[in-house]
Amino acid sequence: MANENKIDKSQVKHVASLAKLEFDDADLGKFTTQLGEIMDLFNTLSEVDTDGVEPTFSVTDQFNTMREDVAVNSHQKDALLKNAPDTQDGYIRVPAIIDESEGAN
């Protein structure tokens, strides 16, 4: 029973790929153990009878606040680009989507 939901290395690897993270083998082992322990804690929620209980996703008392659609704080392109890791001619520069070593050049 206790091991029924135990997360294994291949699952951790899968979740890492969903989260756009990667781990080396040592870290993968460590994370698998730690996440397993925490998932055991998470699994204690199955003891709670929640039949017919509505979930709470937010406790705000505000709904659909509307405001005028007017632009503010415009003309800050230069300031914004200062935080970008790589820029060129007023644009953010990124590597090719496809591996450049596989390209036609």
Binding site: F42, L45, S46, V48, T50, V53, E54, P55, T56
Partner: peptide
């Protein structure tokens, strides 16, 4: 099993 369940426990 996890996110929705936790949100229900939150209600309780």
């Amino acid at each position: 099993a996890y996110f929705r369940k936790a949100a229900e426990v939150r209600t309780l």
